[in-house]
Design a protein around this nucleic acid. Structure first.
Length: 735
DNA sequence: GGGCCCGCAGGG
DNA sequence: CCCTGCGGGCCC
């Protein structure tokens, strides 16, 4: 709390407390208002010099909870800093904005770019690609009060962004209008400002790309599999059995690659935007596969021997398994005679080896990779198995693996799995996730051979500071990026292009996706509940609704006007007030448009370099959002896409008009590809995918889906000639 | 509940 | 292109 006796230095640098001129080494400058203070006269002295760069004066920290929260190390000492700030302040050639920018650069420790001749020079790497994410942001994500990079950003309904502290300080002074446009700040917003997480993530990513040597740990690639398939598993004509006995997989709803390690987070779940949650249950393995928890629909282990295993299923297929919930002993695959067209065989007839998927598990053990675990109702001996269906139980790590003689006498590969998930297990009443726990004593290890224990530090581990399990090392890079390699294993032109285009800018743009259409926002709006949408998308979500609805009262014919509640598409907050006069967040819009135009220029340059006759040219021939964003969801509605609350064509046109008008105001802004407002994606029932329309399903079930191999072995060979592609060359299997 | 059967999907 | 696989429907 501020002490009333705290006073700053006056214009001459004389401390108003001790009335002496404060020496340079004893002057402190507030990071918010840039006022100099005499450090020795402060009632709450600074703990370390390191706090100096982020010190906030008693006036500015009135609303701040605790001082000293800053952790960023300054590169400049206190006295030096003040001198530099003074130099900036007294530079007549600079505008106020430029001064603020330079102050910010100084205070953020970015002294190199604060050199007088070239502030904010973009740093280029050897490829000429801009790597300095924060520089790309420019001053577009600066707080309009302190002019520094937004810290805990909040966005007003009038479309302006402030640091939480600055905003709180502003309203704490009794001000109820926006510092920029003087628009009234809604009282709820003033009381409970919400952090705009899209901006947080964008800044975080920008910082990450700045500090990252190459690539980026948090990079999110979006791969779409089976996207043209129906929502449900389906049977081809060829399949002799109905239902899912011999079915093909339906659409994969999440955008992780098939060899994705670790949890499936919200950013990979365009369908529901929550990710795959612990405890989520599906009807069967096909459905489980569609949500990416465990991709292989028969095999218990999903993995690659040279690369690692991503997930396992506990389905009671091997009697040696031993389940204790938080830890379990898993048995490898193989050792069974599968001749005669069998898929499994209870009887073991030879030893298992550490090869194929057994080796994949061992690789995950050695590296400490996170392994997703699903339990099936078919595991009858475990009390932790679900009653029905297949359930996602979270992340485990393989702490040890070995071989031992199994129940049937032949050797089996064995794995000790220990849970390490940030969410509580489905069976526990705890409401926190796992903490590192001691390994259980495994009796059978006494008789084990080929024991493998992890030697290096695990890739997935508990971070004491954050109090959660995180990637301590970058997750293995996916080898399953579509079309990344040609037949000879050389990287393809398309992949090269994709790599090149995966610039910092592109990643930043992804952070500015509309929560409805999931594309980069056009005319971004931030609701008071801090969710971001395209203007058209949000308005279109309530097309046909009026702000006031009339209700008859108590059986009489009196009509009473009542406010119509309009729930934010992302949460249950009423956004009807906001919608009466929604203001575009122009700072965001400017940033998005500048990123897009820069990317377009870069793309054009690389087109020229590539030559005109590139067969993939249509992929990225514009600053096409489809290139940036996953284009899922569009087909969900198909032709009868106007699913939302009776949205009518006129309404769509109307909002498109508004869009256009607003757009035309801005000179030279290029039309964006997604000016068509998208209807909101229909929410799917959790873990279910039965929302597909009958005709659609029927259409696909006719069997013209993907071309399939026509291979077969063992019995039933005759039926082969009836297959749709029976005329194609096919292996002459012996009968 | 056990056994048989076989399309599919992924690994290599 | 072949091999493998802790599925799932159905018959007994």
């Amino acid at each position: 709390m501020a002490n009333t006796s705290d006073l700053p230095c006056d214009a001459d640098g004389t401390c108003m407390v001790c009335k002496k001129k404060a020496p340079d080494g004893e002057t402190l400058t507030c990071k918010t208002c840039v006022t100099p203070w005499h450090s020795t006269c402060l009632s709450v002295p600074l703990k370390t010099l390191a706090d100096a760069a982020h010190w906030e004066c008693p006036d500015c920290s009135l609303t701040a909870d605790q001082p000293g929260g800053a952790t960023v190390k300054p590169s400049i000492s206190g006295g030096d800093l003040v001198e530099k700030i003074r130099a900036i302040e007294s530079d007549q050639s600079l505008t106020d904005r430029e001064k603020a920018k330079r102050r910010q650069e100084l205070l953020s420790g970015d002294a190199k770019s604060a050199s007088p001749e070239g502030p904010n020079q973009e740093q280029k790497n050897s490829n000429g690609e801009t790597n300095d994410g924060l520089a790309i942001l420019g001053d577009k994500l600066n707080c309009s009060i302190c002019m520094q990079l937004l810290d805990r950003p909040v966005s007003t309904p009038c479309g302006h962004n402030f640091c939480l502290k600055c905003f709180q300080k502003w309203v704490g002074q009794g001000k109820r209008t926006c510092a920029i446009c003087r628009e009234v700040i809604p009282s709820k917003m003033a009381r409970e400002p919400r952090i705009n997480s899209a901006i947080v993530i964008a800044i975080r990513n920008a910082k990450m790309s700045q500090s990252n040597v190459s690539g980026g740990v948090s990079r999110v690639n979006h791969f779409v599999h089976n996207k043209d398939r129906p929502d449900k598993a389906y049977t081809t004509e060829r399949a002799k059995r109905s239902g899912k006995a011999n079915a093909c997989s339906g659409k994969i709803f999440v955008t992780v690659p098939l060899d994705h390690f670790g949890p499936i987070t919200a950013e990979h779940d365009p369908e529901r935007n929550v990710g795959v949650l612990v405890g989520e249950t599906w009807e069967d393995r096909m459905e489980c596969r569609q949500w990416g928890a465990h991709f292989t629909h028969v095999a218990g282990i999903a993995g690659q021997s040279e690369y690692g295993a991503q997930s396992v299923a506990l389905s009671g297929g091997y009697e040696d398994d031993e389940d204790h919930g938080e830890w379990f002993l898993y048995t490898g695959s193989g050792g069974r005679d599968l001749s005669g067209n069998k898929r499994t065989n209870k009887k073991q007839s030879f030893d298992q080896k550490f090869d194929k998927s057994n080796e994949a598990l061992r690789v995950s053990c050695k590296n400490g990779y996170p392994v997703r675990v699903v339990r099936s109702h078919k595991e009858k001996r475990s009390s932790y198995a679900p009653q029905e269906g297949v359930r996602y139980d979270g992340i485990y790590r393989i702490e040890k693996c070995w071989r031992k003689a199994g129940i049937q006498g032949f050797k089996v590969c064995r794995y000790l799995f220990v849970r390490c998930d940030n969410d509580p297990a489905p069976w526990t009443s705890e409401n926190n996730g796992d903490r590192p726990r001691e390994l259980p004593t495994v009796e059978e290890l006494k008789h084990a051979t080929d024991i493998t224990e992890r030697k290096k530090s695990p890739a997935w581990d508990f971070d004491e500071g954050q109090g959660r399990w995180i990637w301590k090392k970058p997750p293995p890079e996916s080898r399953k990026a579509p079309d990344a390699y040609d037949e000879e294993g050389k990287i393809t032109k398309r992949a090269r292009r994709q790599k090149r285009n995966e610039s910092v800018k592109e990643r930043l743009l992804k952070d500015f996706s509309c929560l409805v259409c999931r594309k980069v926002m056009v005319l971004p709006l931030t609701t008071p509940c801090a969710h971001n949408f395209c203007k058209a998308c949000l308005e279109n979500s309530f097309a046909g609704q009026s702000f006031i609805k009339q209700r008859t009262c108590g059986g009489t014919r009196t009509l009473r006007a009542q406010k119509n509640v309009m729930k934010c598409p992302s949460c249950s907050n009423d956004v009807s007030d906001f919608l009466q006069n929604p203001q575009v967040n122009r700072e965001l819009m400017n940033l998005i448009e500048s990123l897009q135009s820069q990317m377009k220029e870069e793309n054009m340059e690389s087109e020229e370099l590539d030559g005109a006759n590139d067969e993939d040219a249509e992929l990225c021939d514009e600053t096409d959002d489809a290139c940036i964003e996953v284009d899922m969801g569009e087909e969900i509605d198909g032709t009868n896409g106007k699913s939302n609350i009776g949205a009518e064509n006129e309404n769509c046109d109307a909002s498109a008009e508004i869009l256009k008008e607003e757009k035309d105001e801005k000179e030279g802004s290029k039309p964006l590809s997604n000016t068509n407002p998208q209807p909101p994606i229909e929410k799917k029932a959790l873990g279910r995918c039965d929302a597909v329309s009958d005709d659609k399903e029927a259409g696909v079930a006719r069997g013209e889906m993907p071309k399939r191999r026509n291979k077969r072995r063992g019995a039933g060979e005759e039926a082969c000639s009836l297959a749709p592609n029976g005329g194609k060359k096919r292996r002459g299997n012996k009968t």
